[in-house]
Design a protein around this nucleic acid. Structure first.
Lengths: 216, 216
DNA sequence: GTCTATAAGAGGATAGAC
DNA sequence: GTCTATCCTCTTATAGAC
């Protein structure tokens, strides 16, 4: 939609998107000029308008593409099974996807305010649809008794914030690999939903082993 | 005495801070002009420079004041006792403080990139000190066996993200009161740290009694 | 598709009157 | 302490050459 119909967008189009994404995330939408983006791409400012009607549309396209990619990737992640298995799958998927798209993640939280109301509504609906995928898992888990949660909707928002917050501190060159982080958060998420180790119900089980196979 | 307009030394300064905070949070630092702030305060743009050397310093002061207020308020919250009690106190404090200062919270996460490196380092140190207060609680809880956590530092970051994320969705006129939210998150946080119900600290003790003092 | 040139204005910050 | 006026730079977006 940002692209003129019938343009033979070769390599410049994608480069514009990539440069805009990086610069908007780094400095903020309003702080980045079209000249800066053009310089990053290696063209003059005027040439950018072959790829976007204006700066606003450039931002909206980035956010919409991010949310669409997220939904598609979740579909393709093949998350199925009992609630705990699906929760594990969602957790790993979310961490992996978001750690690899930190610029887009930051933008999609930060620059919503620069969207028109109509465009904001479209992005918010896409985000809500994603949240609902997690909420469905949590509700199923509560129904089957696998999870203990006071309010599945609140737990959904809490978990997404908890997971997405990784992008605020994780550094690829830090002490932890992505796999380390993913494993650690998997355990935290299980505890958060009350599935801990086979959890509060499991503590007695562990002990029962210690005292001579009384249970389990 | 023969002043063209009234001079309001005592009142204009705070009004500048308030207007800047609101506008920066709403539109972004770079998107707000000094003229906009001045209009909000009710003075001309030039007059703002009686209160700040430049726009940058205005932002830094807002963030530094926010972090200083946070640290002071935490000191005054009188959080003490066993780890679970202190965790509960921290949770309630954090939610209450952050829900009442949403603009400053948003700013302090989103506009760090607009600080000079030196100023960024100062704000980051203040934030780190706050995080460390929670981390100390978690480490104590792990030591006493009250909490079960794979990595207290990661759990700290996870909990702060989980709690601060409330500001992304909570609306004072929504279905939940601040007390509702606080209660629900209290339960979630306890589960997250592996303390389950308040009785979770007691569960191991009960068991240890059952098996003859083998446990803690 | 990209360039140069330019329109039309908004931006931060300062000077000096009062 | 606030005003008006101003400097100079940077901004988005367009026009028309190639």
């Amino acid at each position: 939609m940002a692209r003129k119909q019938g343009s033979h967008a070769g390599i410049t189009g994608p480069k514009v998107q990539e440069a805009a994404l990086r610069l908007f995330a780094q400095h903020g939408f309003a702080a980045v000029s079209m000249r800066q983006i053009a310089a990053e791409v290696g063209v003059q400012a005027g040439a950018l308008y072959n790829y976007t009607p204006d700066k606003q549309a450039l931002l909206f396209d980035l956010l919409r593409d991010h949310m669409a990619t997220l939904a598609l990737a979740l579909d393709q992640a093949g998350i199925a099974g009992d609630p705990l298995t699906r929760l594990d799958g969602f957790t790993r998927f979310h961490i992996r996807f978001h750690l690899r798209r930190r610029d887009a993640v930051f933008l999609s939280y930060m620059e919503l305010r620069n969207l028109t109301p109509a465009n904001f509504a479209r992005i918010a609906a896409l985000r809500r649809a994603y949240e609902d995928r997690l909420e469905a898992i949590l509700r199923d888990g509560v129904t089957t008794g696998a999870f203990t949660l006071p309010d599945p909707r609140i737990a959904t928002m809490a978990l997404i914030a908890l997971l997405t917050g990784i992008t605020n501190w994780y550094r690829p060159d830090g002490r932890l690999s992505e796999a380390d982080v993913s494993d650690t958060y998997l355990a935290l998420v299980r505890q958060t939903v009350g599935a801990g180790q086979p959890a509060a119900t499991a503590a007695p089980q562990d002990v029962s082993l210690a005292i001579g196979g009384l249970g389990a």
